[in-house]
Each structure stands twice: as C-alpha cells, then as structure tokens.
Design a protein around this nucleic acid. Structure first.
Length: 427
RNA sequence: GCCCCUGUCGUCUAGCUUGGUCUAGGACAUCGCCCUUUCAAGGCGGCAACACGGGUUCAAAUCCCGUCGGGGGCGCCA
C-alpha cells in the first residue's frame, strides 16, 4: 500500500509551495487508495510553536486535505534518533566530535536515485561531506530524523520539492547504513515568482492564510496549485479535488519549475465564485464585509443574497464586493470622481435625473421592469438617449460607473433610498 | 567556486517516450468585434513560442553534443 507523508515544520505559516506539496501527496494517496500521513518536524524547539501548527493544520483542512492517523511529532522521539545513531556508531560508520554524532561518508562512489519525476539522478559521494546525525545538544539533524521517521512510518513514496534533491543521496546513505531499502523519491519543481526567483514575500502573498483573507475560495486555490505542475489532460483546467483524485497520475507531473501567475488564479477564483451557490457564498461574504468594516447588523441574509446574486459574476475575489457595492451598505459611499465629471456635469443630465426621480415618486410597484419602462418613456418623450438618464442615475445612486444593471440595482436599493439619492445630487 | 535540476507564446501548458499527421493545439493575460444602460459574463476573431549553435536523418520542437540562460543545494536550519 502506498504511504506518503507531508512533514511541515511549525516555525511559520503554511507557504503556497508547501500547500502544493501537501496537495500532491494527498492526491497520490487518495488516487492509489493509500495513506496520507502527517509528521510535525518540530526539532527546533526555539522556533516551533503551537500557534503555527494550529494554523497549518487549519489551512490544510480549509484546502480540503484530510489525513490518516494522528500526526507524528519529532520532538517526542529524540531518544529513538539517538539510539539509531548509536547503532551506526557501534558499527563503525560514524564518529563523535564534541558530543555530536557524525556519519562517515564513504568516498569515491556513486549514489543513484531513480526519481519518479526526473528519472535517474546520480551523485558522486566525493561531493558529499560527512553528515551530522545528532547535534551537540542531542537533537537530530533534519536528514537523519527524516530517514528514521520515514522508516518508522513505513513511508513508501516521498514526494517533495526540488530543493530536497541534494538531500536525497545523503538520506539514501543513511538507509544503506541501517540496512534498509529506501522508499521511492519524486522531486517536484518549485514555484517561482513572476520575476523567476523563488516565490517569496516580495512577490505578494505567499501564505495560504493571506489568500484566504483576500477572499479566494479553497477549491480555486487548490485547483490552481495543482495545475502548476500537473496537467489533467484533454485541456481540462477547472476541476474539483474529487476529479483530480480520479485523474491524477504522477507520470503526468511536470519536471519544470513554474511561475506563479496571480492573474490566472484570479480568473479561476472568479469561475468558482460565479458557479457557487449564493447561499454557500453568503457566510463567507459576510465575513469579508465585517472585516472590511461594514455594518451589516440590520441587514437580512435574504437581502444581502440578492446583492450577491447580482455581483457574483463581476468579482474575482470575495473582498471585491465591498469595494464595488459599498453604496448598498452605507449612504456615504465612495464616488468615482472621473465618472462624476463625465456623467453628472454633462449638460442636461442632472435635469434628466430630476425628471426621472419625479416620475418614480408615483410608482407603486418599484420593480425593475416598471422602472425601466418609465426611464424609456422619458427618453422617448424628451427625445433623449436612454443612456443620458441611465448613466447619471447610476452615478447618483451608487457613485460608480460600473456595476450591475441599473434597473435591478434600483429595485434592490428600494424606492426611498433611490429617490433620496437622485435628489441628493441637486444640492 | 563545486554539485544537481531545468529551457515550447508575456504566463501555465499540449506535443517529445514510438522523428513526418505541427503552416506547433488549449488556457490566462492582452487587443478587436458582437451583445449591451456601464462593468462583468457570454460569443467570435487577432497578436504571440519550439533559447542558440552544431550534428544524425530524405525529414527534428521531437534523437545526440556543445553553448548560453533560469532555478535549487553545498548548516550541529528544516
């Protein structure tokens, strides 16, 4: 049975690259009916914290990743590492130096790795220094603990980032020293920033948490991350985790590093938003509005839902709704000055809005159809273009030059607020 | 410096294993048109790539060699 693992270090947030690594391991396990395990690499007592661990696990769940069995914590296995190192020492393959236990690397031979993604990789041991297994303070080094634990956990396949390629021969040497057969390795290329350098803070968001806050949907982020390095075939791009599990094939993974393209992620997110049911979007949208400082206490879910229905095809992230539709939540909405100049300063336009407002006063059933009818009637009577009524009116009620259709927007806002705002521009 | 990975449109990629079907396909972005009350969405179309140089071959994006470029690693960090 396939057994893979994801081994985060709780010394910081979950990086997009790590999330991608986790995703592919999970995909491989679920596709093959194997197990996906977690191992917490918290050997660095100073930098590790519970807070980071909770955040990382929370982000994994948020992305749709679940794991089998309880996570293994390295901090609780120091005795095991020391014992294994002692065994190697006893066999004469290591030596001690200032309390540290150091593995003796046999020179002049080749270590070969049959990488699942790259194919054969060969390294000469002349290029590998002797390796510390146990540090002077008694804690294990990364490479050593990794091998001891992967053995203990019976990991069959190790799928990790390209940056670990040079660790692999060192680890294989440990496996050999302990008389073990190494698992299969697969190294996936790293994600790069737009400028081709390793994806880092200066490229914008690098943590899953940041994208979550921005209003990206987990499905969209996971979908995008998966696409960065794996091609599902048949020009498929938008696919759920379930579909990805079915289609996943490690042989289709790319061996070339890819640049992170926020534009494509935004597009994908937009696709997910518009296809999502409004009722599923609602709680997420409300969270966004709340953090953005909108007071939505007096507004019903039903009412906000209507706004979401109107806007979900127009936003790429959930946080954009607040910017685009602040007029829905407050009377002191922001006004597009360019648009104001263009539509409200234009000769006759304010007058058109006034006439429109006057006629709307007497309208009983304030429906989009009726509103539109009146608008078109006025245009015809006065030989105007409907646009000369529509644009200034949109400016008057929303302060924006863009947004949902005017008549449905008016219906949504309600007669009273609409007329008040239309008259407001004459002051 | 040494070691390793890698190089198809601006970006993600299909094609490369089994050379000809590739005047290189799709998607994002971009540009134009249609629809239209704006913005989106949708529809249609345009621009745009085999890093370079040598081979091998009747024929190379596909095979071989070299050059150049990009990335990663060389910690008693993980």
């Amino acid at each position: 049975m396939v057994k893979v693992r994801f081994a985060p270090s709780p010394t910081g947030f979950l990086h997009l690259g790590s999330a991608r690594t986790a995703l592919f391991n999970w995909l491989y396990a679920r596709h093959t009916g194997g197990k996906f395990l977690l191992r917490i690499e918290d050997t660095d007592k100073v930098r590790s914290s519970k807070k980071f661990l909770d955040e990382i696990l929370g982000d994994l769940k948020w992305l749709g990743i679940d794991w089998d069995e309880e996570p293994l914590c390295q901090s609780q296995r120091f005795d095991v590492y020391r014992q294994k190192a002692e065994e190697i020492l006893a066999m004469g393959n290591a030596y001690k130096e200032s309390e540290a236990v150091i593995f003796k690397v046999e020179k002049g031979r080749q270590v070969e790795v049959d990488d699942m993604i790259h194919g054969k990789i060969a390294v000469n041991t002349d290029d590998i220094k002797d390796q510390v297994m146990i540090k002077s303070d008694g804690s294990p080094t990364y490479n050593f603990a990794c091998v001891v634990d992967d053995t203990y956990m019976e990991i069959t396949h190790i799928l990790r980032g390209d940056d670990h390629i040079s660790n692999t021969p060192k680890q294989i040497l440990f496996y050999e020293a302990m008389g073990l057969t190494p698992p299969k390795f697969g190294h996936m290329p790293l994600i790069l920033g737009q400028d081709g350098a390793k994806l880092s803070k200066r490229h914008g968001g690098v943590s899953v948490e940041e994208y979550k806050k921005e209003g990206f949907l987990p499905g969209a982020l996971a979908n995008y991350l998966i696409l960065l390095g794996w091609f599902p075939g048949e020009d498929r791009e938008v696919l759920s985790l379930d579909e990805a599990v079915k289609l996943f094939d490690i042989n289709d993974m790319s061996d070339v590093q890819a640049k992170f393209d926020i534009q494509k992620l935004r597009w994908l997110n937009g696709e997910y938003i518009m296809k999502h049911k409004t009722e599923e979007l609602l709680p997420l949208i409300k969270d966004q509005l709340l953090t953005a400082g909108f007071d939505i206490s007096g507004i019903t879910d039903e009412y906000i839902s209507k706004l979401v229905d109107l806007y979900k095809i127009r936003i790429k992230t959930l946080s954009e709704l607040g910017d685009l539709a602040d007029w829905f939540f407050r009377d002191d909405f922001t006004v597009d000055e360019e648009g104001k100049k263009k539509y409200l300063e234009k000769e006759g336009n304010r007058e058109n809005v006034k006439i429109f407002a006057d006629r709307l006063e007497g309208l009983e059933d304030f429906s989009r159809e009726n509103i539109e009818k009146i608008c078109r009637e006025i245009a015809e009577e006065r030989e105007l273009k409907a646009a000369d009524i529509i644009h200034p009116t949109r400016m008057a009620i929303s302060g924006k030059t863009r947004g949902a259709g005017l008549f449905e927007t008016m219906e949504l806002l309600g007669k009273e607020r609409v007329i008040k705002r239309m008259r407001g521009i004459h002051k």
